[in-house]
């Protein structure tokens, strides 16, 4: 390489350094991502048999996909349930995290402590803990008691009011499920809050000062300055939330797929399920991207 140096232009040299710096990723991508990805596609079309010295593949065509969709007892049910749950959570998480970020961006006593706590779910709600909490009798009991005593009672009253106001039934159902899932929504919001908060703090304060001098109220400058400048982050967060909730370890479909491979030993079917799952994620991302990116405002 030293002998090459004098002959390279500056651009050429910088390009070479770029390749050097990103080389670990290129290697890792080829060996531990693209390779396995291709293999997994081959597996999804075959029956996999593990032997002491390696593994054998028998070509099956689309049999694994057919099995997952038609024969497997619960794949379709869990697939639809998980997808619908995630889709209903997304608006709630977005709205909550934006709201929380505006709250944490204001000046008040104990703001630092509030931030520390709001970001804590990053630590507290990870794989193993979430899994064990679901099994735990005390957690369930307390949740149950709370449901019995307060939540159900209030939500009944609220639902009755909403029904008397002739609100559409789907809307009422959505609100009630969203309310019952408040803890999940809050826990899923930690990183979106972080992203929104970073965005809020990157808005130059001179804009607000100008607006104030020109006579804009706080309400107006919120909608005319904060909201447009923050709007690209709605897209970032949307993508983050979709990916994060689809691949979260506590997700029941993910658990089901893992079980298919490790407990039931049907590797091919498990991989076929993941491909369909990935297809669904990709579809949502494309729709969200196409829909939101039109309404997003970029400063530059």
């Amino acid at each position: 390489m030293i002998s090459l140096k004098p002959r390279l232009t500056l651009t050429g040299k910088r390009a070479l350094w770029g390749i050097v710096f990103t080389a670990p990723f290129t290697i890792g991508f080829l060996l531990f991502f693209l390779g396995p990805m291709i293999q997994s596609f081959v597996f999804s079309l075959s029956e996999l048999e593990v032997t002491p010295h390696g593994f054998n593949l028998n070509y099956l065509g689309f049999e694994n996909f057919r099995y997952a969709l038609r024969v497997d007892p619960s794949f379709m049910r869990i697939f639809t349930e998980t997808t619908i749950r995630i889709l209903t959570d997304i608006p709630a998480v977005i709205i909550f995290s934006f709201f929380a970020a505006t709250l944490l961006n204001q000046e008040f006593k104990g703001r630092l402590l509030a931030r520390v706590i709001f970001f804590m779910p990053v630590i507290l709600t990870a794989g193993i803990i979430a899994q064990l909490e679901a099994q735990d009798i005390l957690h369930r009991m307390l949740a149950y008691v709370a449901d019995q005593e307060d939540t159900i009672a209030t939500s009944r009253a609220v639902v009755q009011v909403m029904m008397q106001l002739r609100m559409p039934q789907d809307f009422i159902v959505y609100i009630v499920t969203a309310v019952n899932r408040i803890p999940d929504v809050i826990n899923a919001s930690a990183i979106p809050i972080l992203i929104f908060l970073a965005g809020l703090q990157s808005i130059p304060s001179s804009l607000f000062e100008t607006a104030k001098i020109e006579g804009a109220t706080a309400w107006e400058s919120f909608w005319k300055i904060t909201f447009p400048l923050i709007s690209p982050l709605f897209l970032t967060n949307m993508v983050f939330i979709i990916v994060d909730s689809f691949t979260a370890p506590g997700n029941s479909l993910v658990t089901y797929i893992s079980n298919a491979a490790w407990s039931r030993g049907i590797y091919g079917v498990s991989v076929a399920m993941t491909w369909m799952y990935f297809g669904a994620i990709a579809l949502f991302l494309v729709i969200v991207f196409g829909f939101i990116s039109k309404h997003v405002f970029y400063m530059e």
Binding site: G18, I19, F25, F32, Q39, V243, S258, S270
Partner: peptide, 30 residues
């Protein structure tokens, strides 16, 4: 640094984020 294919390669970084790890879990394991 800009180099031929740098944009594409960065797109691949995003792809690794989007693909559920369950997809490559069996091949990686093997």
């Amino acid at each position: 640094f800009k180099f031929p294919g740098s944009g594409f390669l960065f797109g691949m970084v995003i792809l690794t984020l989007l693909v559920p790890p369950q997809m490559i879990m069996v091949p990686l394991f093997l």
